[in-house]
Design a protein around this nucleic acid. Structure first.
Length: 573
RNA sequence: CGGCGAUUAGCGCAGCCCGGUAGCGCAUCUGGUUUGGGACCAGAGGGUCGCAGGUUCGAACCCUGCAUCGCCGACCA
């Protein structure tokens, strides 16, 4: 490719809307342009990267035995009603009607369509297992699109769906996909970790996420210092403290705490650490026996945070988790949210494992402006349950018993699920087994955020000059930078000859034939992150020399022109 | 969906408080000089100041509404 015939579209200045490195660089390097909130055009440079990532994914998926298909973006609403997700998927699901007033959605994912397909195409257990995948555009009307393609509304995803006779077969394919994902992310040159994950609204039982480690990541991952335990913080178990609760040493007393409402304020007012306080949160629940709505009190140690995913999984707590309003709280407790506590509350109380071993603690008095001190479970609060409610914090013991936990930010680039029969049952997707009996197929699903992978790679690989692509993702492998291309015959001749030679060998070469000043060419090639550059100048050429520069280290080396091709071939081998 | 902010040339911004000829830098085009790390000189093109109302002799500027974009939070296979 010659720059004069290419749409390089680089920007010197950073557009104001971009806040993280990958978004800024994708705009500056001319990979993408924003069309509307969460919608992006992929420019030629970006499209080349996108296709490279897609090809690697496709190769590895094909190697794993999966079969590529292509399903429509537009899907009939009836399928979503069949699966039950018409109700459960919120406004994120973009719904519309056609001219005949038939109802459709823009596919945010394709479980319904692929299940519909398999219902017709898979008739016998002899066809199983089968794994179908596509690389396709999805649309999710995100509440808040941000960070460029990291969280766009329209994005490219590789999604695969596997079908099985039984759980053993599903588990086998799950393992194959897990390994395939490792190979894909290894090949892409990313630093990532597979972590235990929540299954979220897609449903299912067993799941791992593939997280690219980067500070800009929106997820938090807990790792063990000693073992390979790793989990999304949503899932990471906060194990029960080993030490048992101390016997009460103090009498319960009421303390006036005017204007102290938050944990930090109360701790400061009482001149005591946050760990000696317990905080109380009120959520909506359903009474297990009567089925009536009720308010449930959740109690955590003052320095800990509620893990909403864990709370939602407790039966009797409404999903999605909804906090009680100030009015509801006042009606039930006779006090506002800043002064709540378990003492005297006669509804359901769920206490976090760590809070449950606190003794002589402080908590709200259920009276505005007052807290209680010297509070003890059992003695002062006779009836309560103990559950794992909180987010883990750094230093917590690892759930597998080895080492302690550290927390890091991650970008979720892939996820593998065991779905089970959630969709096959709801949509009557069955197969005849060896006994001639109709059974719902076991299903798995496996996604990779293709466009997000690119943003994640840039988050991990850039410097102040621009992108430093992992070799397999680079839009071009080699840049030829001729100084005075338009004026010097020797430079032009050498550049054209090298370009022809390297191109004929099958390399992806970009020749900067714009005749720009050297600084402009260097800056552009570094910005778009071409891994290898050949610099040709008239003076060096007169001595038979060319220069080789490598992007990762920005190191330069002069060597005979005749040896440059061999040098490049070695570097790219 | 709540709170906050922005919207003026392709991009980054000033002008608004205090109403009266729409500006700067970068980019683009022309000519010239330059050519090893985002050059210099001279000239040129490019704007319904987000949209709609209102106040006013007169609105980029003041008022009202709406839209879009962004930030923080809630949300998220």
């Amino acid at each position: 490719m010659r720059t004069s015939r290419f749409l390089l579209s680089t920007l010197k200045e950073t557009p104001a809307e971009a806040s993280i490195a990958s978004h800024q660089l994708m705009l500056r390097a001319g990979l993408i342009r924003q069309l509307a909130s969460g919608l992006y055009i992929w420019l030629p440079t970006g499209q080349r990267v996108l296709q490279k990532v897609q090809n690697i994914i496709r190769e590895e998926m094909n190697k794993s035995g999966a079969l590529e298909i292509n399903m429509p973006v537009v899907q009939p609403s009836e399928l979503w009603q069949e699966s039950g997700r018409w109700e459960h998927y919120g406004p994120e699901l973009c719904r519309f009607t056609d001219r005949k007033d038939n109802s459709f959605v823009l596919g945010p994912t394709h479980e319904e369509v692929v299940t519909w397909l398999s219902r017709y195409e898979i008739k016998s257990y002899k066809q199983l297992p089968m794994n179908l995948y596509q690389i396709q555009t999805k649309f999710r009307d995100e509440v808040r699109p941000r960070f460029g393609v990291m969280r766009g509304r329209e994005f490219v995803m590789k999604d695969a769906y596997s079908f099985h006779m039984n759980k053993e077969s599903l588990r086998k394919t799950y393992e194959v996909m897990y390994d395939t994902y490792c190979r894909i992310f290894d090949r892409l040159g990313l630093t990532y970790r597979p972590v235990e994950a929540d299954t979220g609204s897609i449903g299912g039982s067993h799941s791992h996420e593939f997280q690219v480690l980067a500070d800009a990541g929106e997820d938090i991952i807990a790792f063990s210092t000693e073992s390979d335990y790793a989990a999304n913080i949503e899932m990471a178990e906060a194990v029960a403290p080993k030490e048992s609760r101390k016997a009460p040493a103090k009498e319960m007393t009421s303390i006036s705490t005017p204007d102290a409402k938050t944990i930090a304020e109360v701790a400061e007012f009482l001149n005591t650490p946050e760990t000696s306080l317990c905080k109380s949160l009120v959520v909506h629940g359903t009474n297990q026996k009567t089925g009536a709505d009720e308010l449930v009190l959740l109690v955590l140690r003052g320095d800990h945070e509620l893990n909403e995913v864990k709370a939602e999984k407790i039966s009797g707590i409404n999903k999605p988790l909804t906090m009680a309003t100030d009015e509801e709280i006042r009606a039930a407790f006779g006090a506002g949210p800043g002064s709540l506590g378990p003492v005297g509350f006669n509804g359901r109380i769920i206490v976090d494992r760590t809070a449950a071993v606190c003794s002589d603690f402080y908590c709200g008095a259920n009276k505005d402006g007052f807290h209680l001190g010297g509070v003890n479970w059992d003695r002062d609060v006779p009836s309560y349950e103990v559950q794992d409610l909180r987010c883990v914090v750094e230093g917590d013991p690892s759930p597998d018993g080895k080492g302690t936990l550290v927390l890091k930010h991650g970008i979720e680039v892939g996820q593998v699920f065991e779905l089970g029969t959630k969709y096959s049952q709801a949509m009557n997707c069955t197969v005849l087994n060896e006994e001639g009996k109709n059974i719902p197929m076991e299903m798995g699903c496996y996604g990779i955020g293709v466009t997000r992978v690119i943003a994640a790679a840039i988050e991990q690989n850039h410097d102040d000059k621009g992108i430093i692509w992992p070799a397999p993702m680079a839009p071009f492998q080699i840049a030829i930078i001729p100084i005075n291309y338009n004026k010097s015959d020797s430079v032009k001749e050498a550049a054209d000859r090298l370009y022809a030679e390297l191109t004929a060998k099958g390399y992806e070469v970009i020749l900067d034939d714009r005749g720009e000043r050297p600084g402009v060419m260097f800056a552009d090639m570094k910005l778009i992150g071409v891994p290898h550059s050949i610099i040709l100048g008239e003076k060096s050429l007169a001595e038979g020399l060319a220069e080789y520069e490598e992007r990762t280290s920005d190191s330069k080396e002069k060597l005979p022109l005749a040896e440059i091709v061999a040098k490049i071939e070695k570097a790219l081998a």
